[in-house]
C-alpha cells in the first residue's frame, strides 16, 4: 500500500482507488424518481445560483463583481495550522440561508440528511450529496472519527442512516442505513483536514439522481459561485437550507468561501453550474473565521471518487 495521503481507506477490505488513466469528472443525472420534477438555475448573470423562492443572492451578478487576481492568492486554509489560528464562526454577518420548501424534487433530492452513529454509540448529524445511485459524497469526518478525545469513539462510524430529500419528519424516498465507507489515509491515519473527504456506499440504489463532480482549474474555481444545500443543526430538525456565494480563495487541496453554514452541514457538496449542469468542486467540512471551507475536488480526489462511485 502506498504511503501517499490520498491512498484509499475502507471500512471493508476491498480497497479500491485512483487509476491515473481515468477521466477526472463525472456527469450529473436527475434520476428516475418523479421525472419532470426539477428546478432550473438562475443562470443569467449569476454564474448559476438556484432559483429558490425568497432567496436573494447577496452579491448580485458575478460578472459585475469578479476581478481576475493580479497576484497569487494565499490559501487561507494555511492559517488554520498557524500559531494563532483565527476564530471560527460559520454564519458571517447576515444569514443568507433560505429553506427549501420541497426537497423531493431535483436537485434537492440529491442532497441527503445523515444520522451517524459512532463506534461508542454517540450520535451525530451531517449532510451528503449523491454522486451516483449508491454513492453519497461527504466529509471524511462524517464517515471516520479522528481525534475525538473520547475512548472508543475514534474510527469508522458504526452506521449512517441516509435520508435523501428529507423535509422534517417527511422522508419522501425513505432511508437506507450503511456501514460501508471510503476515505483516504490522509484523513484516517493523519487526520489532516486537507484530506477530509469520504463516501458512503449504500446497499441499494436510490433513484433520486446525483450531481456531477469535476476537478476544475484554479481559475475556474476562483471564478465560481459556490452553491451549498444542507441540513444544519440550528434550524428545525431535518430541514434543507440553501445559500450561495463566490469562492474567496483556492489552494491545492482546500477551497474557502463565505457561504453561511452551521453544524450539521459537513459533507454537503459545494457545486457550481456549467452549461446548466451542477458539478461539485469541493466538499464542505469546516467553519472558519471569515470564510468556511471544504476539501477541494482536485485530480486525486476526483480519481478516487470515480473509482468509488457505484
Amino acid at each position: 500500500m502506498s504511503d501517499a495521503p490520498h491512498t484509499p481507506a475502507s471500512s471493508e477490505s476491498d480497497l479500491v482507488g485512483f487509476a491515473p488513466d481515468q477521466p477526472l469528472s463525472s456527469p450529473p443525472s436527475e434520476g428516475a424518481a418523479g421525472e419532470g420534477a426539477s428546478v432550473e438555475a438562475l443562470g443569467s448573470g449569476y454564474d448559476g445560483v438556484e432559483d429558490v423562492e425568497g432567496y436573494v443572492h447577496p452579491e448580485g451578478a458575478a460578472s459585475d463583481l469578479w476581478t481576475p487576481p493580479t497576484a497569487d492568492l494565499p490559501d487561507v486554509g494555511e492559517a488554520s495550522f498557524g500559531p494563532l489560528p483565527p476564530q471560527a464562526e460559520t454564519v458571517h454577518g447576515p444569514d443568507d440561508r433560505v429553506q427549501i420548501g420541497d426537497p423531493s424534487v431535483y436537485p434537492w433530492r440529491a442532497q441527503c440528511s445523515l444520522a451517524m452513529t459512532a463506534a461508542d454509540g454517540s450520535r451525530w448529524i451531517g449532510s451528503g450529496t449523491f454522486i451516483g445511485p449508491r454513492t453519497v459524497l461527504t466529509a471524511g469526518h462524517c464517515v471516520y472519527v479522528k481525534g475525538s478525545g473520547v475512548a472508543g469513539r475514534d474510527g469508522w462510524m458504526r452506521s449512517i442512516q441516509v435520508m435523501p430529500g428529507r423535509n422534517g419528519a417527511s422522508l419522501p424516498y425513505g432511508s437506507q442505513t450503511s456501514s460501508t465507507f471510503r476515505s483516504v489515509t490522509g484523513w484516517t491515519v493523519s487526520g489532516n483536514q486537507e484530506f477530509d473527504y469520504g463516501v458512503i456506499i449504500l446497499p441499494a440504489s436510490f433513484n433520486v439522481g446525483w450531481l456531477g463532480f469535476w476537478n476544475f482549474s484554479d481559475a475556474d474555481v476562483l471564478a465560481a459561485t459556490g452553491n451549498i444545500a444542507g441540513y444544519p443543526g440550528d434550524k428545525p430538525a431535518g430541514t434543507l437550507w440553501y445559500a450561495a456565494r463566490r469562492v474567496a480563495s483556492v489552494g491545492p487541496r482546500k477551497v474557502h468561501y463565505d457561504i453561511d453554514t452551521a453544524g450539521g452541514q459537513s459533507g454537503s457538496g459545494v457545486y457550481r453550474f456549467l452549461n446548466n449542469e451542477r458539478h461539485v468542486f469541493a466538499i464542505h467540512a469546516y467553519g472558519g473565521a471569515t470564510t468556511n471551507s471544504g476539501t477541494r475536488v482536485n485530480g486525486e480526489v476526483a480519481g478516487n471518487l470515480l473509482a468509488w462511485k457505484v
Binding site: 466529509a139 467540512a285 472558519g288
Partner: peptide, 11 residues
C-alpha cells in the same frame, strides 16, 4: 458557533 480555529461543521 465560535472556536479558536477551523472546526468540523457537524452537530
Amino acid at each position: 458557533t465560535d472556536a479558536p480555529g477551523a472546526i468540523p461543521d457537524v452537530a
